[in-house]
Design a protein around this nucleic acid. Sequence first.
DNA 1: AAAAAAC
Length: 514
Amino acid sequence: MTKFSELNISKSTQDSLKRMGFEEATPIQEGTVTFGMEGKDVIGQAQTGTGKTAAFGIPMIEKIDTSNPAVQALVIAPTRELAIQVSEEIYKIGYGKRARILSVFGGQEISRQIRALKNNPQIVVGTPGRILDHIKRKTLKLDGVQTLVLDEADEMLNMGFIEDINSILENVPAERQTLLFSATMPAPIRKIAETFMKNPEMVKIKSKEMTVENIEQFFVKSQEREKFDILSRLLNVQQPELAIVFGRTKRRVDELSHALNIRGYIAEGIHGDLTQAKRMSVLRQFKEGKVDILVATDVAARGLDISGVTHVYNFDIPQDPESYVHRIGRTGRAGKSGMAITFVTPREMGYLRIVEETTKKRMNPLQPPTSDEALLGQQKVAVETLAEAVQKNELNDYVQFATDLLGKYDATDLVAAALKHLTNEPDATPVSITEERPLPSRGGSGGGRGGYKGNRSGGNRSHGGGRGFSGGQRRSSGGSRDGRSSGGSRDGRSSGGSREGGNRDRSRGGRSER
DNA sequence: AAAAAAC
């Protein structure tokens, strides 16, 4: 391991890195920083969590001339969240040097961004569409760009941004340094590298380091309609500290987060149809631990660096194997272990094997917990909750009631009753998730084998706001300050220890049954 | 077929 102090980095940036707690360079950083500061083009093959942002951020910051008002570096990222995250990290790296940085992305008032661009940022991070928009409005001039970064290039390819990238590149001087990062290197990406880069150096993290070494991978074979109950039971038994549940569609994410709320979990959904403000607030709440479970489409699969995610549940198996790798890469980060559990319907078993071939790792079958095991998990939580309440010693308001009760009932019975009250019977609240991809066997007799794509066109959308459930109040949606039930005393999370001591701030409220 | 991304 090389220390940053051994690399030829300026004092001000060294100070920034120290402030960030960075001492040793990760493999991708070591290679990229060295080549990058020599002015070479670099292809970095690595995923997030490997320290990729600092890998290109350090040489980028080093090259910035703070007395020059022009935009000197441009970073293009596939999603808004990633653009925000990257700009925040580069801001920290450039703090010692006082480099000015701005992120531009869709969904945010463009007038605000135009005003900010007039302050002459030296680094701009953004998503393709909005960058192009600014170029066309002539509010973003790129003639002074010396460093160009394409982050998550394979993802930008998947999303069809290549034309946008080409258009942006037409506005960037040919005389520049280009850094390209991509988790995978499919042919089109190699072609882009050949076209737009000059004798690039490859910095590749060996594949065995690149994926999933410290992620335990399981699959649960289950019918579509069993999935949600199994998920609830798994959550009760495994008690993840922070979990992400991936769903296949935006609608499914809405339904899942709603259903989880009904069952008493603190969950919030995130997908591309939410306003940008909402997306940001949900992500922030999850990072702060005010939300335990993030339910997400693949908008959150890539790049997002959220520390402390202990479990990833693929409620739906992802559409392509690469997406699988990205999704489970949200856990098991920074050397910590993580667990990934993928739901597979019987007909998807063959596809599961294809995913395994890609990751070169077998997934172990996981027996879904029984209802009793799930109950046991709940009971353990209830015991912890009660014990914690006693330790906190903020019970004055209840002492009189307690004394009265003790006069009438047996003490053991009373404690047992309190525990029972704190326990959600697993599966007790009936909740249904719309099956988006009905199995051919149940879609009607005509279906037979070929009925895989049996989505009746336009049909099945009868739900208004109800989303196909009955009962249960929805956590106020909209607004940016919702979901704060139960002030999270979740400190110590950053230290990462498994939280044996309980303090699960999962609200047991909303027991509409009973 | 879905998701993401510009208005």
